[in-house]
Nucleic acid binder design. Structure first.
Lengths: 345, 345
DNA sequence: CTGAAAGCGCTAACAC
DNA sequence: GTGTTAGCGCTTTCAG
């Protein structure tokens, strides 16, 4: 092990507790020269405090775990990145772990959580529907009562605090926009298996379409959230007798797959078909054409999660904490991929 | 703090060391019934070992830090993801930290490294040119002699082991491919400030272009590695009197920006201009058109980094370890964005 | 203002 | 086979 506090205590001719006090800016006055000398020695010797020892002693870690189900997922990246930005202005360090391969390491995905449980002051869980079941999260919480908040997902039972997106609002503004442009044949690419966000969006879409008496049948295509599935969904839709004039992807990646299908089929976007989606991942802006999408306020999402976590960290007793549920409102960003339908120009 | 080893020792009526032995599968025989009983109690009580205490005692952490300069960077994501995949088959857990905001937290970017130094068994540094200087890394290494390997980057001084890409080879196969298609006006979008990968690629491009006596002047456009800069570079190139027939981006994102410029200007890719790049980030496959690119073997890259790290971890004395430099060979992936130039069809 | 001492939870060497 | 003990590096109470 590296240099310890008592090593530098010896060099300075003081006790190790004095060194500790100096290095931690303890609220106790220490003679200026000793202080100076100790700091100098610590710097010169490249002293690095042993976090394990500190944590063992104090019970505090100065770290927040960010658990994302897959770092490769563009949406997760936006969330993680936003969390990191907010956290960088706090006394905490972000520490992220992915559970994409949790299944490989242990049979129980709960192990990832327990692995990290004793190294952090709080946990933010992003997505992870498919890997971490509600039951697992609830069990973990019951066992630890560690500050915990789920992002984008709300665990059943109302015990775990959450931050989610107002998908009802998001879907409504998108639909209103498309209807106003004059679209009547609006397809929705759903995902299979569904997740909470996708379901919420799909349900509202269905309601609106029904209430306006628009054709809804055969315009639903199951996809599983990758661009290649969006691609095949797009291919199917373009080969339908009643071709839709607008296609909504339940997320941006799906829509980008649809755009690629259009490109390969020589169907012009948005001249012949409009495409829109949800999330506003970075790619949405730089795709050709750029994508109209319901944008998540990642910064707000992250701020809500960290505020909630801080709140929990400051609770004296978390075991009877009443979960809070925060909801972030998205906004519509119109770009190149949507326009007035050909028939109405 | 949670349940400790001695809590469950009490419940089982044994000493805490017996519990420790059982839970760690120590190479000592313990009576079957006690073993059984201890394991049962630990499970029932949801015992979670305190990693800080274990680490403090043993000096081992079971963790590898992966430091990426920005999780938002698609290339970094591919590297991180590959590292995580490899690591998931090892006894180590990945723990990643980004230094994108390191400047915000402390003046010295070295602090991120020191922060993590005492919590891991080894460190993988991905990119981070702009944030962590060579000097900082060298200083850190001198202070800790912690297992350390840089990916994509080679620290000057030949003390730090590295894993890099054979950019000379990659650029050569790409240029040969374009020349074979019949291109003679090949532009290269460089970045400013340059990084090691970009410089390596650019130099080889220059050499080849000169040796073939192709026009090289005014075809270099500085960009800084974001799609929007690729976009403006593309715009400039398309407005040149001698329009290039092929444009190479020093990375995929730049090329995707170029493609977008072409889209907005109504210039058909690849019919009127071919576009190609380096890295093969995920977006390259799903862009419209999909992008011809020199693909990094991320899996190999990650394996090399972890093998090197493991090797260092098993060294008795790292302070006079001789750095090893591993080089991964890329491969050309041809997709929709390149074709025979219009004039030669 | 500063030192001595206890102890966080754990592992491992040493007794028996 | 199992218990006792020391101590990893640190913070913090208690003396002085």
């Amino acid at each position: 092990m590296g240099l310890s506090i008592s090593d530098i205590a010896k060099l300075a001719g003081v006790s190790h507790s004095t060194v500790s006090r100096v290095l931690n800016d303890a609220p106790i006055r220490i003679s200026a020269q000793k202080r100076e000398q100790i700091i100098q020695i610590a710097q010169r010797m490249n002293y690095i405090p042993n976090r394990s020892a500190q944590a063992l002693k104090t019970g505090r870690h100065g770290r927040i775990a960010v658990i994302a189900y897959d770092i490769t997922d563009a949406f997760a990246v936006e969330c993680v990145s936003a969390v990191e930005t907010i956290l960088s202005g706090s006394p905490y360090h972000a520490l992220w772990m992915s559970c994409a391969h949790a299944d490989k390491k242990e049979t129980d995905p709960l192990n990832l959580l327990t692995e990290v449980a004793q190294s952090v002051d709080g946990i933010i869980i992003i997505l992870a529907d498919n890997y971490l079941t509600d039951t697992a999260i609830l069990k973990f919480w019951a066992a630890t009562h560690l500050p915990l908040v789920t992002v984008i997902r709300r665990v059943s039972g109302d015990v775990i605090s959450s931050v989610t997106i107002d998908n009802e609002y998001g879907t409504t503004i998108l639909m209103e926009y498309l209807l106003k442009l004059g679209h009547e044949q609006i397809a929705f690419c759903y995902c299979n298996p569904p997740n909470q966000s996708a379901s919420g969006r799909y349900e509202v879409y269905q309601q609106i379409v029904k209430s306006k008496h628009l054709p809804v049948d055969l315009l639903q295509v199951p996809v599983d959230g990758t661009a290649s599935n969006g691609y095949s969904a797009g291919m199917k839709l373009l080969n339908t007798p009643k071709k839709p004039t607008a296609i909504i992807g339940f997320d941006d990646l799906t829509a980008i797959g649809v755009i690629k299908a259009c490109f390969d089929m020589g169907v012009k976007v948005p001249a012949e078909v409009s495409v829109a989606a949800f999330d506003n991942i970075r790619m949405a802006e730089i795709s050709s054409p750029s994508l109209t999408t319901v944008s998540t306020d990642y910064s707000e999402l992250a701020q809500m999660a960290i505020d909630e976590l801080n709140n929990q960290i400051n609770q004296p007793n978390l075991s009877n904490y009443i979960a809070k549920h925060h909801i972030s409102k998205p906004a519509l960003i119109t770009r190149q991929s949507t326009a007035i339908p050909k028939s109405k120009v």
